[in-house]
Design a protein around this nucleic acid. Structure first.
Lengths: 156, 156
DNA sequence: GTCGTTTTCTTGACTTGTTCAAGAAGAGAC
DNA sequence: GTCTCTTCTTGAACAAGTCAAGAAAACGAC
């Protein structure tokens, strides 16, 4: 998909969700398509590279709006900053390398609504499951999103 | 269990882990036993109430040491600050009310090593699963840890 | 096209949770 | 008791994210 096609697609998704189409919004959606699991900083960088100056506040606002309307999904593995992705609706899960921060998508083995049935729901009406699997990555694959930790002391 | 017994138990666990026994450490362990899923702020408060002045830095250091040695487990539901608990080793999961922040423990229905088997491990050697189930709490039970969000705009 | 309303973006300061660094105090071995 | 190493105190710093007020842009109505 070319950049223009991606922008068209982003525009359509924004309109379908009843949102105004603005440059920062299409830019964020396009950037997220190109960089799955990107954190806010990376998104800001990508948006500025592709579309010119955009304030960090605008990106934060856009991410909140897109998350609230369900166009993007926010994930936040323990010890990491917030990350975002455009793959939504299938409630898939994530594997995170504790050491290097690499993230990959995984489908749960249990089925389409995985882990939504706890043994005892404790009086909660469970409607969503956040599942983060942890462990070292053995072979680094090209399609994975690699996020090197910023400091040695990082809590990966 | 009385407070003294709890302190004795905390001391034993510290020694068993090869750690020095200090007042801040027993205080944190005891506080965590009384307040499961407490955040750092609550822990600092509880420790100071029970044992007198302790620096916040000491509590952060203690929590890191205890987490690193496996005596406590750190959890961090999306949009929340870090929380800690003394129930470790069984890899249980959590239900979180998106609105009010109430947290409860749940055992996974799948078994002792739940969800450690993804459909495709993507080249990762998975050794831990963080599972957070989300949804509104229906009836508030007394044994649950209730954490009202600080502000209306909180990302519960 | 352009006008007006509503929503969004910019600018810049601020809060909060957490970490860093240096020296003082405490724990445990001898 | 003394010595050594670890831990705690103090106080500053940092990073991610939020708040607030005004400027600018989107888009429906004309």
């Amino acid at each position: 998909m070319t950049r223009d096609q991606a922008a068209d697609d982003a525009e359509q998704r924004l309109r379908a969700a009843g949102l105004r189409v603005t440059r920062p919004r299409t830019a964020v959606l396009t950037a997220l398509r190109e960089h799955p699991h990107a954190d806010t900083d990376a998104i800001i960088g990508a948006v500025r590279t592709a579309y010119g100056p955009v304030s960090h506040q605008a990106v934060y606002d856009v991410l909140r709006v897109l998350t609230d309307t369900g166009l993007v999904r926010r994930i936040q593995p323990t010890g990491s900053v917030a990350r975002y992705e455009v793959r939504v609706g299938d409630n898939h899960h994530h594997v995170v390398c504790r050491r290097c921060g690499t993230i990959a998508d995984v489908d749960c083995a249990v089925g389409d609504t995985p882990c939504l049935t706890a043994s005892d729901d404790q009086g909660f009406e469970i409607d969503e499951a956040e599942v983060v699997l942890l462990g070292p990555v053995l072979q680094l694959q090209h399609h994975l999103t690699h996020h090197p930790p910023r400091k040695e002391s990082h809590a990966w």
